[in-house]
Computed example of a mutant assay.
Amino acid sequence: MRFTHETLAQRVILDAGRSLEHLEAQVAHLGASRVMLVAGGSASSYADRAAVLLPVVLRWTEVVQHVPVAVAERARAAAADTGVDVVVCVGGGSAVGVAKAVALTTRLPVIAVPTTYAGSEATPVWGLTEDRRKTTGVDPVVLPTVVVYDSDLTRSLPVDLSVASGLNALAHCVDSMWAPRSNPVNQALALEGARALAQGLPHVVGDPMGTPGRDQCLYGAYLAATAFASAGSGLHHKICHVLGGTFDLPHAPTHAVVLPHVLAFNAPAVPDQARRLAIALGRPAGLAGPDDDAAAAATDALAALRQAVGAPRALRDLGLPLDAIPEVAERVVAAAPATNPRPVTGPAIETLLRAAWEGADPRSQS
């Protein structure tokens, strides 16, 4: 066994119902006195309560998915003009993305209070979109210094969006099993994250206001993002970055739709990883010997989970035009990591995308 693993420095708090208390304490711990509070419309009520407790000098409400460069530049200018010394973001991946865009150039610390399972709060990855192209990069300065998880804040997320967001988190786990810097440590984190999400999501669907399922999903989403931050971006995320940046498809549902197709594409080439993933997803039966079909077990386990939670199925339902598939495939092939378990060719990616566009069963496409 031989590998190199880097562990990111970050304080993580999970405590249902007490996020305001922790947020106030963490701002004080940093010695901050001029807070930029980033929160879009869905988080405005919580932001109002936070603003009473924190020394907020700037409220920023322009929160846009995939973070257009123009939005980032306006937020950075406002932060500089106001002289803020910390950025607090409340919301999903888009809110965290705006905060990261500010931190990238100002080097301000970020405190994140997530309201979805996006996981961006646990990675040093930033993303900006301009001229129909999403650019991503890695810089430790954008990693939030503190993350405060509170499952109460996810209860307002509708069940369908909770499912999509949870499957987006699961995509971090799956991609981490064979991403460019995958190693035994981040694979272990990914597998435990997958187990937690596979257990938590059905509980969220069955009891949307309950704490246990949503706590499990936040825990799983954190582990998933931590694994992804270490392992790097694999084929799945390259596909979704093109779909999101070029065609402005909704982030979490796009990941939820594409995930089973990438798993079905790659799993046959990595049976050991597929076997372990199948077990994490709750399908240990029939995985005792080398002759078992580990890829089928993994794809079947994911299919069962998706059926149980009512996952989104088709890219056409998200607004992708059918005639866009060749352009998407061309961009994906150019961006795909050379370490992907299977060769990434134009025809293969077009086939994968067409199945995802139609909502076909990916197990018939592998």
Rank of each mutant, 00 (worst) to 15 (best):
W357T: 02
Q187R: 15
H255V: 04
R34D: 02
A70W: 00
A51H: 00
S19K: 07
G286I: 07
L201W: 09
V102I: 15
L8K: 09
A264N: 07
W126V: 05
A77Q: 15
N266D: 15
P341Q: 07
V344M: 14
H66S: 05
R181K: 15
V35I: 01
T135F: 08
V148A: 01
G41S: 14
A112Q: 11
L143C: 02
H22N: 08
T246V: 03
S230I: 07
I349L: 14
D215E: 15
V242W: 10
S230V: 05
L20D: 02
V328Q: 13
D152V: 06
G206Q: 15
A50T: 01
C173I: 08
A95Y: 06
D85H: 12
V12M: 11
V87M: 02
T105E: 14
V69W: 02
D160G: 00
A16C: 12
S120K: 06
K238F: 02
M209V: 06
G193D: 14
V56F: 03
L143K: 06
V332L: 13
A301R: 02
V63R: 09
R59D: 13
Q187E: 12
V88R: 04
P202Q: 08
P114M: 10
G17K: 10
S366K: 09
A171D: 01
V64F: 05
Q199R: 07
V333H: 05
L263Y: 05
I279G: 10
T4G: 09
A231K: 12
H236Q: 03
A122I: 00
V344R: 13
A301C: 05
D131N: 15
V262D: 09
A79M: 04
Q65L: 03
V64D: 12
V69N: 06
A311V: 07
K100W: 00
A285Y: 02
D248S: 15
A75K: 10
S45T: 09
E121K: 05
L20S: 01
G245K: 13
E350T: 00
W178G: 00
G31S: 11
R181N: 15
D361L: 08
Y117Q: 04
V12W: 07
R363G: 03
K134V: 05
T61N: 11
G31W: 13
F3P: 06
D272S: 14
A78W: 05
A50H: 04
V148E: 00
L201R: 06
D150Y: 05
V88L: 04
S162I: 07
H255L: 10
V52I: 13
A103V: 08
A198L: 06
A190G: 13
Y117M: 02
S33Y: 07
N340H: 13
N183M: 09
P362L: 01
I111M: 06
P326V: 00
L108T: 02
P180R: 11
T105K: 11
A28H: 13
A231M: 11
A274Q: 06
Q65G: 01
A25G: 09
G234Q: 09
V38D: 07
V52A: 12
A16K: 11
A334S: 11
V147N: 14
